[in-house]
Structure formats: C-alpha cells, structure tokens
Amino acid sequence: MAADPEFGFSAYVDGIEGVRLLGAALDRHGPPLPVLVEVGHAGGRTGCRTRAQVLAVARAAAAEPALAVVGVAAYEGSVSHARTPEALAEVSGFLRTVRAAMSGIADEGLLDTRAGTGEWLVSCGGSIYYDIVARELAHGWGGDGAAPGLTPDTPNGRPVRLLLRSGAYSSHDDGLYARLAREAPGTPRLAPAIEVWTQVISTPEEGLALLDAGRRDLPFDEGLPVPLAHRPRHAGARDAWARTTTRDAESLSHWRITALNDQHAFLRFPPGSGPRVGDLLALGISHPCTAHDKWQLVPVVDDDYRVVDTARCFF
C-alpha cells in the first residue's frame, strides 16, 4: 500500500487481541491499514457476537495508529442453508444487526477518514442470500435518522458501499446453489459453469462403473457430483469418441454417483443401461468453492468443447 496508493486492501478484526497483534505488526508511520469490524452470530464462524463486542473492537482499532476503521463485515451464509420463511426471517434479522453495528460505530465517531477509500464499506456475501443482503443493506444509510458519520453531506460523511462477496455468480453449480438460487425471486437465472469430464475405466460388476475422478478432483462437501452428459467411445477405434454427446436428463436420471475414493468415482445404474469402458462422462458439481482449490488452472471451452482460454483460480 505504501508503494502503490491505488492498491486497495482491507482486513477483518473481531477481537481486541487480534487488533493489538495487527497494530504491532504494522508500520505506524506508513499508510493506515483499513479494517472492517466483523459481525458474527452464535454458533457461526468468526465475528463479534454482541453489539458491545463490536464497539469494544472498533474502539481498540481506532486507538491503533496503524489501523483505520472503515466499516463492518459479516457472513450471513452460516445462519442457515434454507430458503423457508423462517430461515429468511433469521437471515434478515442477522443482517439488521450488521446495519446496527455500522450505525453504532459511526455514532461513536470511530470511522477513520485517514484511509483514502473515499467511502465506508459494508461487506457481506454468501451465494445463497445475496438478494436478502441487497434488500437489507444496499439502501437507507443517509437521510433522517441515519448515524452522523453515515450521512454523505456531513463533514466526515462518506457514501456507504455494499460489497457483495458471493462467489457462485461466476461459477454456478448443479447442486447446492442450483437448488437454492432458483428460489430467489426476481433474480436472474444462473447457469452452471463447471463440468468435470471423466472416463469409465472399469465395469467390474453389473450396474457399476468406476470413473477416473475422485475426491482429489471433485467437490463432495455439499453433495456428490451428478452425471450431466455421456459421450460413448467407438468400439474398436483408438482415441475416437462419438461426435454427439447425450444430455438427455431423463436417460441419465437413473445414473448416480454413490461414493468417491481418492481417485475413483462409483457410478451406479440399472442393469443393461450403463456406459462402457472408455466412454466419457461429464459430471456436474455441488459447491464451486472447493472445486477452485482443486483446479487452479481451468480450461475454458466453447460450445463444441474446443479450448479457447484458461482461467487461473485464486481461492
């Protein structure tokens, strides 16, 4: 940051001890590091559990010369994994505590204008409740009743920017997010962006095929992969597959991935209906995050599966 004023970076703080360690590690004569006070919830991940903790951490950060409080952060995805009315109400309630935390920090004058961001930040973002985050936190920071530091026309006022961190918008899936995102009213329909192509390497039993991809290749923490497409290999031909790929959901609906080993997937199917050794299968995944840590360089293909680019993943 000292070498490049245009470089933007902010860190989270959620405890006084962490604030002190961070402040001691930084050069107090350099540019202050923007920090966001993280708001959490009981049973969740990191983050302050109470309003009192939020304010205590913000005060401690404001007292560190090397730090500058510029807003708050939270992760609402750990509140629930459902979109029932009860779950949505719980998520909305949590997001209102995030708004209250930001207002409380501003009320005490703890937001620091030394950070050259030009705006205050509120950062939230899982990939399930992005519509609820936008509804609860994208508006209403200025005007009557707002905390003094959040009104743009006051001396220390800056606009509040809502920063969504939802990751599945760029690499949607065929599992967890496909089920839940389609239930978000008024939002665009997202299309899955990741397929993992595998080959049948063994058919040792009737109704069972082994594929050459396993836990090292496929996410499995939020559900097993699902068969999306089948491309048969020409009998007797070397390295030759059919030009057409079957994507008939009905014909593949009885094919199931039932288990993963480190380097193998178990595909079960009704007797007499499965693939042969050498055939190719495309699998859809659930939870893109844990695909990106396995595939750090991903081929990008066109509709004919010609590689047209690569994308490097930083997860």
Score class of each variant (00 low, 15 high):
3 A>S: 13
15 G>L: 00
18 G>R: 07
21 L>G: 13
21 L>W: 13
23 G>I: 00
23 G>P: 04
23 G>R: 03
27 D>I: 07
30 G>R: 00
33 L>S: 04
33 L>Y: 08
33 L>M: 15
36 L>Q: 02
39 V>G: 01
43 G>Q: 03
45 R>A: 12
66 A>H: 09
67 L>R: 01
69 V>N: 07
70 V>A: 09
74 A>G: 15
76 E>L: 01
81 H>L: 15
85 P>I: 10
90 E>R: 15
90 E>P: 00
95 L>W: 03
95 L>I: 04
95 L>E: 06
95 L>M: 06
103 S>H: 09
120 W>V: 01
121 L>A: 08
124 C>D: 10
134 A>N: 12
135 R>Q: 14
136 E>S: 05
139 H>K: 11
141 W>E: 05
143 G>V: 06
145 G>M: 02
158 R>G: 07
159 P>K: 02
160 V>R: 03
163 L>V: 14
165 R>A: 12
168 A>Y: 01
170 S>F: 15
172 H>C: 07
173 D>R: 00
177 Y>M: 06
179 R>F: 06
182 R>H: 12
183 E>F: 06
192 P>A: 11
196 V>M: 05
197 W>D: 01
201 I>H: 06
205 E>W: 10
207 G>S: 10
208 L>T: 10
213 A>I: 02
219 P>Q: 03
219 P>R: 00
223 G>F: 05
224 L>W: 02
225 P>N: 10
229 A>M: 08
230 H>V: 03
242 A>L: 07
250 E>C: 02
260 L>R: 00
260 L>G: 01
260 L>Y: 02
265 A>V: 02
268 R>G: 01
274 G>Q: 03
280 L>C: 03
281 L>I: 11
287 H>F: 15
290 T>E: 14
291 A>T: 06
293 D>N: 12
295 W>S: 04
296 Q>I: 12
298 V>H: 01
299 P>D: 15
301 V>C: 13
301 V>T: 14
301 V>S: 08
304 D>F: 08
312 R>V: 15
315 F>K: 11
